[in-house]
Computed example of a mutant assay.
Amino acid sequence: MGHDDLPTLELAFPGPERDRGVAAILTGEKTALTGLLEIYEHAGEAVPRAGRRFCVLDSEGRPAATIELVEVRVVPIKDIDDDFALAEGRGYADVTEWRKAHEEFFRSEGVSEFLGRTPVIDDETLVVAQRFRVVEP
């Protein structure tokens, strides 16, 4: 199955943040990603399931890698631990740094614009925690 046959996955928004994320996937540093459940619901998208493959796009919209989800959990944000935060491959020292960065992103202008409001993020906010493996770069 080629890139063209797969649903696409875009990290963050095009630009430096996406470029760093794609680079971390390609080096193997990034093996996890997190989405806000509310974004999936607002977009009318089902939460992906383990075994699903995606074509990861770079900032120019070009295929950069194919990944396969190996674990998908919907959990309150407070349940994310240091191990998962480190697997995000963004250089977080611990889950506290991870959470601060994710809260900032989830409350960002781009996300707020998409949702039509700024989401409230508290300990019970549900996130989609996904672990993956690279199938082909």
Rank of each mutant, 00 (worst) to 15 (best):
M1L: 15
M1G: 11
H3S: 13
L9H: 03
L11A: 01
A12Y: 15
F13W: 05
F13I: 11
P14I: 05
G15H: 08
R18N: 11
G21T: 00
A23W: 00
A24M: 02
A24E: 02
L26T: 03
L26P: 05
T27K: 12
K30M: 00
T31Y: 00
G35F: 12
G35S: 13
G35I: 11
L36N: 03
Y40Q: 11
Y40C: 12
E41K: 13
E41H: 09
H42G: 03
H42N: 08
V47Q: 11
R49H: 10
R52H: 05
F54M: 08
V56N: 01
V56R: 02
V56C: 02
E60C: 01
L69K: 04
R73Y: 06
D79T: 06
D81V: 12
D82F: 10
D83M: 08
F84Q: 14
L86K: 12
E88L: 03
E88R: 02
G89N: 09
G91K: 15
G91Y: 14
Y92H: 14
A93M: 01
T96H: 07
H102N: 15
R107E: 13
E109L: 12
E113S: 14
E113I: 08
T118M: 09
P119N: 12
V120G: 13
E124H: 03
E124Y: 02
L126S: 07
V127G: 03
V128M: 02
V134E: 06
V134H: 03
V134C: 06
P137M: 05
